[in-house]
Nucleic acid binder design. Structure first.
Length: 219
DNA sequence: AACTCGGGGCA
DNA sequence: TGCCCAGAGTT
């Protein structure tokens, strides 16, 4: 099966953009440091869950120093209602330490620097650079990966890195950030992992799974 | 490449 | 009440 061309990819993305024209980062934050913490917290849990703890959290902790000074158990307690809180608390303390030691307590704008921080991987680094600093980037999370594969924008067997590279090749740079958010919204609310809304999907005929699902009478 | 980590949310 | 969701780190 041949890969979808640039033109076909952009046609599909235009349809998605029409469905979610207002798509943007859903993590509540008011500066790059808060965003970084929010994205680290959001690993393996939903943005909605993170948004429940961050208002109180950001009131209590504003600077890297605040996270360094607090006992680990207390920070764990403050984020207990979201998953993986132990490792996340440890990572936030480590990350804050690195920020102070190597970056004067500021969040670095360079993706390769961000990725060195504890708890920060490709996805987190891309979100922070693009949302906080306006650097064009495509962060590949499970939604982006699933949608890209179902629509044939990339190959089934592609790694996260390959998905990212393919998307960057097929999408003009000025649309990276918008498309990234629109793909996430499309995956989260429409092209869901288990129960995608194929019946009302404008892209069924393009999709590798859609028509099969409809024939099996799966909505 | 496969496995682990830990909760909330929803059927 | 048990299944589904969601990245980074480790081996």
């Amino acid at each position: 099966m041949s890969l979808k061309s640039k033109k076909q990819t952009m046609e599909a993305l235009d349809v998605i953009a029409e469905l979610f024209p207002e798509a943007e980062c859903e993590l509540v934050h008011s500066n790059p440091f808060e965003l970084l913490i929010a994205v680290v917290l959001s690993a393996q849990c939903t943005d909605a869950l993170v948004n429940k703890v961050t208002p109180q959290l950001f009131k209590k902790y504003q600077k890297p120093e605040d996270y360094i000074q607090v006992p680990l158990e207390e920070l764990e307690q403050d984020i207990r209602s979201i998953g993986l809180f132990r490792s996340k608390a440890k990572n936030i303390k480590k990350l804050s330490q690195s920020l102070l030691e190597s970056y004067n307590g500021e969040v670095p704008k360079d993706r390769d620097e961000l990725i060195k921080l504890a708890g920060v991987g490709r996805k987190t680094a891309n979100v922070v650079t693009s949302v906080a600093f306006g650097v064009p980037a495509i962060a590949v999370d499970t939604h982006v990966e699933r949608v890209s594969k179902r629509l044939g924008i990339c190959r089934w067997k592609d790694s996260v890195r390959e998905v990212e590279e393919t998307l960057m090749k097929k999408i003009p740079q000025e649309r990276w950030s918008d498309s990234h958010h629109q793909l996430i919204f499309f995956g989260r609310y429409h092209c869901k992992a288990q129960s995608p809304k194929c019946v009302q999907c404008p892209l069924v005929d393009v999709c590798r799974e859609g028509t099969k699902r409809l024939k099996r009478n799966v909505s």
